[in-house]
Write a protein that binds this DNA or RNA. Structure first.
Length: 585
RNA sequence: GUCCUCGUAGCUCAGUUGGAUAGAGCGACGGUUUCCUAAACCGUAGGUCGCAGGUUCGAGUCCUGCCGGGGACGCCA
């Protein structure tokens, strides 16, 4: 149970009661009242801005609302004190039993603790990775992959019904280049000397395997034949084999998709035409001539009538072309069809996770989603900034042309999936991120993966020791959930408990904001509070977790220790990271 | 030229969708170990939240305009 939501209801009830008795006007914005922990813990456990928010619409001053409201709240059995402070905040101090009950709740719910129903089962489609099937995933893809996957997990925990989706761009010129490059490697596999890979082809060594595979299965039947005969075959085979590779690499990071959508399949099924007809039917398509882009006019620019979508009616800067001059659909047109497809498959809420270089694309796609769904659908685009790779502080140089780019597989193989996943979430998605091979493997405070894992391992270790110190006692979560927790009275113990009790609230707000990185920062806080408490036992022996002469207190503390480990495990679960039991080598 | 995005301590970054005296880590300085994992912890110093206006009870957060970094800009995907 989310303590803050629980009190939101109580506060709203008190407000409604007050409104009745004092004859306040109808339609007051009670739903905008915040119920949150104050920044400064000395202000109490829960703070609400109700009085300040309502003063104006009620037509009085904040204090005139705060005083009777505080009085009413103070009468609640769970509330120890209610004070009016500052410009009109009401600070509540809750009975310790409220917090202690959360410890028991964590132990009985396990890592499911923090799950919420705010999503109300609403369907969300999260599209991420969606790398072109023209080569293996490289390190830069890791960020979007981890971000999207964690966001999907977070939304699921917050009660949404989530579809994880990958869009295969298998329809454009790039996959034809892939097919031609593969054909070269195929000839090479059959013993031909192909020399240097010509300009306009993908030089990567990874295509040798694909060429080899086709040589083995098909023999020399595609040698010396015109391109028109083999292009389709090579395209399809190469894409298929590349996607197999991509899926395998993603699986190595624990990432699995519910749906893979093929751009080509959509086009062939006539989905683009249908999307176009939908827009056309709403009068949102016309033939017109675009102005050349200011400041950077292409050399070969010439004004040309084109089929345009009225994106500017939905917040975009200009209208956008749907057809190329050769009459084929633009990528944008295909993408509109794809988003309509996602919408029609039952997800009104769409999320695209893209690289930051797609920033210029956001407005038009949002406009398109609004237009094509008749305002029923919404799109949020999360742009992931670059990842800079370092090795012991030295930048790792990458060049696609020189073929020296680092693959996702390289990174996973050298530092492990868990480290990659955690580090990728230690920055907001729109900030550039530094990833240092050495640092993520360090066992120091400097390495957030280690720091959080250490807290979990330390908790496990303490429980193990307690088992030796208190033989014959049941230290299972089920047993600890029933233990009397009255001896948890130290301010730092209660502080840790309050932090743990904030997990459900964090899940809700992070899911709402589509910001999974908050989980990583939160776990850092939990770990810090736990390490701090552990060390406090060094200075003050009575605060040690295990007190051989005081079984009752030890059991209560074991409950807290297990609750801490459980919340950490719950958070790591959202991040897709495995909690470790032991760090000793 | 237009649009997007970022700008917070010496460095790297958070900041609870507008709340109270802006927080962490690193680095610096000073402490803590016969004891549950010192792979850690505690304390001190460090700020014109890029600049200037505006909105309101209240702005790091929202609006406008500048400055600076990054990105995008018709038939690439």
């Amino acid at each position: 149970m989310n303590v803050f939501n629980q009190f939101r209801e109580k506060i709203q009830a008190a407000l409604e009661d007050l409104a009745r008795r004092q004859g306040w006007p109808d339609g007051l914005p009670f739903d905008r009242v915040t119920v949150e922990p104050p920044r400064d813990l000395s202000h109490g456990d829960i703070s609400t801005n109700a009085a300040m928010l309502l003063a104006k619409p009620v037509g009085t001053n904040p204090r005139a609302i705060a005083a009777p409201l505080a009085e009413a709240l103070a009468r609640l059995p769970e509330v120890e004190s209610a004070e009016v402070a500052g410009p009109g905040f009401i600070n509540l101090r809750l009975a310790a039993s409220v917090w202690l009950a959360e410890v028991a709740a964590i132990l009985s719910e396990g890592t499911a603790y923090g799950s919420s129903t705010t999503g109300e089962g609403r369907r969300v489609n999260v599209e991420y990775v969606s790398a072109n099937p023209t080569g293996p995933l490289h390190a830069a893809h890791a960020r979007g992959a981890v971000f999207g996957d964690a966001l999907a997990a977070l939304l699921k925990k917050a009660g949404f019904t989530v579809t994880r989706e990958y869009y295969i761009n298998d329809a454009g010129a790039q996959v034809e280049t892939l097919a031609r490059s593969t054909h070269l490697r195929y000839r090479e596999a059959l013993g031909e000397d192909i020399g240097a890979i010509p300009e306009g082809h993908y030089p990567g060594e990874y295509l040798k395997d694909v060429g080899q595979a086709i040589a083995e299965s098909d023999g020399d039947r595609w040698v010396g034949k015109p391109e028109s005969e083999w292009l389709e075959v090579f395209r399809a085979r190469a894409v298929e084999l590349m996607m197999t590779e991509v899926k395998r690499d993603l699986l190595a990071m624990g990432i699995q998709f519910d749906t893979f959508s093929s751009e080509r399949a959509l086009v062939e099924a006539g989905a683009v035409q249908r999307a176009f007809d939908t827009l056309d039917g709403r009068g949102l398509v016309y033939t017109g001539v675009l102005e050349p882009p200011k400041g950077k006019t292409p050399d070969d620019w010439e004004p040309r009538p084109q089929l345009l979508f009225k994106a500017s009616e939905f917040g975009d800067d200009v209208d956008r072309p749907l057809k190329k001059s050769d009459g084929s659909w633009t990528y944008f047109a295909n993408d509109i069809a794809y988003h309509l497809d996602k919408f029609l498959r039952g997800s009104p809420e769409l999320i695209d996770v893209l690289g930051a270089d797609h920033g210029g694309y956001v407005k038009r796609m949002k406009a398109a989603v609004t237009a094509i769904s008749g305002g029923e659908g919404s799109l949020d685009v999360k742009l992931c900034q670059l990842v800079h790779l370092f090795d012991g502080g030295k930048p790792v140089r990458m060049s696609k042309r020189a073929g020296t780019f680092v693959t996702l597989r390289d990174v996973i193989d050298s530092v492990g999936s868990d480290s990659v996943r955690f580090i990728m979430l230690t920055r907001r998605n729109d900030q550039t991120l530094e990833f240092d091979y050495q640092k993520v493997q360090e066992q120091s405070r400097d390495n957030p993966v280690f720091y959080v894992q250490y807290a979990h391992a330390r908790a496990t270790s303490v429980i193990r020791h307690a088992g030796e110190a208190l033989p014959g006692h049941d230290l299972s979560d089920a047993a600890l959930a029933k233990v009397s927790l009255g001896s948890l009275t130290d301010p730092d113990e209660l502080g840790l408990i309050r932090l743990l009790a904030g997990w459900p609230r964090l899940v809700e707000s992070a899911a709402d904001a589509h910001e999974p990185h908050r989980v990583a920062f939160y776990l850092g806080e939990v770990a810090a509070a736990f390490h701090s408490l552990w060390n406090k036992g060094k200075d003050e022996a009575h605060l040690r977790f295990i007190l051989p002469d005081d079984t009752a207190t030890t059991l209560a503390r074991m409950a807290l220790v297990r609750a801490t480990a459980t919340v950490i495990a719950s958070g790591l679960g959202v991040m897709g990271v495995q909690p470790v039991e032991e760090l000793r080598e």
